[in-house]
Amino acid sequence: MSTVPAAIPSSWATRLPRRGHIGMLSLVAAESAIFSIFIVAYIYYIGKSLSGPTPRQILVVPVFGTVCLLSSSLTIHLAVTGLRKGRARVFKAFWAITAALGAIFLTGTALDWRRMIYKLGFTIRTNLFGTTYYSLVGLHAFHVTVGFIMLAIVLIFALAGKVRQEHAEKCEALSIYWHFVDAVWVVVFTVVYIVGR
């Protein structure tokens, strides 16, 4: 590769969008289409279950988890801003907080599911509500999990001192994904806990 000089003038290169951003935005577009289909199915089946239980009897609004997840958007933003300015400690601190907030959200979901599955016997096979609820919330939780794993990997590198200012663009691409996961939660929350309840 190095035998052929890259002869792109930097004035032109800066006019083109960065491929990391475009790639991640494209992925977000595709993911949002998947979520849309699950959300449509959820809304379409509200109140169509042939047997109980109903959402009102089962669901407990996850206020704490929601607050955690939404505020993690702010912390990841602060982390990336910090990294771009070369402030590694700020980056590490906020990045760790972001990962922790994501973990809290996931733990909350896990405990909530444990309550429903083991205490109430409400599973994905119970009725249409069970099927659509576990699928939609589960799909989102899966995305949070993937995001958390990526956050954790970056965090390990950061703690090892391997994340530097020039990696800001890559971390920013990851933050786009994390913001997307948060934004989806706003929609899922509205549909499941407000409209559907």
Binding site: I34, F35, S36, I37, F38, Y45, L50, I124, N127, L128
Partner: peptide
């Protein structure tokens, strides 16, 4: 492609986990 992926996931949930997305006997 994504809507198809989503629909296939639902079909797998129906077939493997006993879901009811397209189960006309359970109101699907």
């Amino acid at each position: 492609i994504s809507p198809l992926t989503a629909a296939q996931l639902m079909l797998m949930i129906d077939r493997y986990l006993g879901g009811h997305f397209f189960d006309t006997q359970a109101g699907g």
